[in-house]
Design a protein around this nucleic acid. Structure first.
Length: 569
RNA sequence: GCGCCCAUGGCUCAAUUGGAUAGAGCAACAGAUUUCUAAUCUGUGGGUUGCAGGUUCGAGUCCUGCUGGGCGCGCCA
């Protein structure tokens, strides 16, 4: 049961108007409080405490209310009956949305032939968790990994391979796709091609021009370039799949990016031309997305650059058109770096103006950067910008060291699970749009508000449940201790938390909830022994029931965060 | 120059979207273990919420101005 909703609805019905229900910061005041008296005192010109005194007796009549009190300037505090809490607390399960939506979520956005950078970590983790929460609430979602598989980098990579292996037949204009070619690309080498080529192109204009020429011919359908492209694309897709597994995120519904979107450029261009939206500016084909109300300069949306090539502006718009055709979503949500805000503002306007997709159904969730202690983007020990793998490796080493220090023996798989939890939980814990500081030392200590703490709580609960090996049925009567009571109320708060996390697009809420739940669970665990010999049977049964509820709730939260519970730690 | 975001104990972050005495973790100090897993639990100290005004019963939260930081501003994605 969603206790908050139940109490709120009951109170509104009883009072005949909508009262604002809150859970006091200080739980000593009560389980819930309402400022109804203060709000209506204002409109009615009456004394709030007098009004509260009139309202309170009505609330006292509700069968789940233990007592009602008036405090401060006119707060009405409500305490819920223990038995009501015990009888109605349930473990969360998949919900049915009252108004189910279809939502396209764009996150991941991995690149072909380019190892994942640190930013991919946040888009993957936050996007995945938000996706899971949305599904859990009963909405239909489609996740799109909008792969960078079409633009300028492809030209550079092909040009680079041409430079390394000019003898390969792919570079001949009359290449026959059926020709068998004895050439394999090494995955690790492939990841270096783009950075190397990109750097080389900057100082070598001849190579730069060659890459551009290749890109144009490639996009026009050059068979040899395309055959080569398909070769490294396959490797990249495999790498991406490994990343998905390594991060334990849900498989994407679509691994379709720029190349796929490019197929929709023509119909989109027809729409734009029909509306006279495209005009020439400095040799490029652009769309004006300014509004009269703009106070900031609004650059035009770049449909084609001055060389006539697609841009990421055009493929992004085409991708929207594609999604409209394929999923017909009620909303499209992008999870990308905050710095792309202007681009998305332009995209949303262009889509809206062209009638392809309405402005108010788009959302851009921009995330901040992961920084080191110095406040600048996190670097590895050798001073290079850290990649996604670096982060996970660093966490792995830290966990391994900590485990060795403790004298415990955990297998590599368990260590990986713990390290990933450390990284992911830490990421989810922070407000999406703000930068956060990644401190390996904070993870090394494994104390406090961390992923390992969450897992540890689940593991020790699980250990009791396994050991009990009994049934966990609800007791008819059981006198709750304060620890048990607080824990059950927190469990009943789960649904409300999920709804807020969804509505606010705030994945940190689930992480913070999980932490609070763990604190209360550990408190319960510590103060309410279950399987000890001196514990009477009825108390044992009651506590086992509560422990099971706590475990089910916690494991659901853990699952929504894309973490795994190890068998021991 | 224009625009967006941010500023909360020594450090890293919260604060139910305007509510009561601003909460957690780390670090510091003091305790708890014949263990259902101590990667745990309990306690103590630590704050003029960057500064100055304003709005109202009530402001960390809203409005204005300042100070200090981050980011963005047509052919890279």
């Amino acid at each position: 049961m969603n206790l908050y909703k139940y109490v709120s609805d009951s109170i509104n019905e009883k009072l005949g108007f909508k009262a604002n229900l809150e859970t006091p910061k200080n739980r000593d005041f009560g389980d819930f409080s309402t400022n109804a008296a203060m709000v209506s005192a204002k409109t009615e010109g009456k004394n709030p405490r007098e009004l509260a005194a009139q309202i309170a007796p009505k609330l006292q009549e509700l069968d789940f209310v233990e007592n009602v009190s008036i405090a401060g300037p006119g707060f009405i505090n409500i305490k819920i009956k223990n038995d009501f809490i015990l009888q109605n607390a349930v473990a969360p399960k998949q919900m049915i949305a009252t108004k189910p939506l279809t939502i396209d979520m764009d996150y991941g956005a991995y690149n072909v032939a380019k190892s994942l950078h640190i930013g991919h970590l946040r888009t993957s983790i936050v996007g995945d968790t938000f996706n899971r929460i949305t599904k859990f609430l009963g909405h239909k979602t489609f996740s799109w990994n909008h792969i960078g598989d079409w633009g300028k980098p492809m030209g550079l990579i092909i040009a680079w391979i041409e430079r390394l292996h000019p003898e390969l037949p792919y570079f001949q204009d009359d290449f026959d796709p059926k020709t068998p070619v004895d050439y394999e690309i090494d995955e690790k080498e492939l990841n270096n091609y783009y950075p190397s080529a990109s750097a080389f192109a900057k100082e070598n204009s001849e190579f730069q021009a060659r890459a551009q020429e290749i890109k144009a011919k490639f996009q026009a359908g050059h068979p040899g370039y395309f055959a080569l492209y398909e070769k490294f694309l396959a490797i990249s897709l495999r790498t991406m799949n490994n990343t998905v597994q390594r991060l334990n995120i849900l498989p994407f519904d679509y691994d379709l990016g720029e190349r796929n979107a490019a197929k929709y450029l023509e119909p989109v261009e027809q729409i734009l031309r029909a509306k006279n939206m495209i005009y020439e500016s400095d040799g490029a084909q652009v769309i004006n997305v300014k509004r009269d109300t703009d106070t900031a300069p609004m650059p035009p949306y770049m449909w084609r650059d001055s060389r006539g090539a697609d841009t990421y502006d055009s493929t992004d718009l085409a991708a929207v058109y594609c999604r409209k055709q394929v999923d017909n979503p009620d909303r499209i949500i992008y999870f990308t770096d905050l710095r792309q805000s202007l681009h998305f503002e332009q995209l949303f306007r262009a889509a809206d103006m062209s009638g392809i997709y309405p402005y108010d159904k788009f959302e851009h969730i921009g995330y901040g950067t992961i920084n080191g202690k110095d406040g600048k983007p996190f670097k590895t020990r050798d001073g290079n910008a850290a990649g996604l793998d670096d982060i996970i490796d660093i966490a792995n080493e830290a966990v391994k060291a900590r485990v060795a220090e403790s004298g415990k023996k955990l297998d590599d798989e368990t260590i990986k699970i713990i390290a990933l939890a450390a990284v992911k939980f830490n990421d989810l814990l922070h407000d999406v749009k703000s930068d956060y500081i990644f401190e390996p030392s904070a993870i090394t200590s494994f104390e406090g508000k961390t992923g390992p703490y969450i897992l540890y709580t689940a593991v020790r609960l699980n250990s009791v449940l396994k050991r009990a090996n009994g049934d966990f049925s609800k007791p008819h009567e059981y006198a709750l201790t304060t620890e048990e009571r607080s824990l059950l109320i927190e469990i009943m708060d789960f649904e409300k938390t999920l709804l807020s996390a969804y509505e606010n697009r705030a994945t940190d809420m689930i992480a913070n909830y999980a932490y609070d739940l763990c604190q209360l669970t550990n408190n319960f665990y510590h103060n309410c022994p279950i399987l000890r010999d001196d514990i009477p049977t009825d108390i044992k049964a009651g506590r086992l029931y509560i422990a099971k509820l706590a475990f089910d709730t916690l494991s659901t939260a853990i699952d929504l965060m894309g973490l795994k519970i190890p068998s021991e730690m």
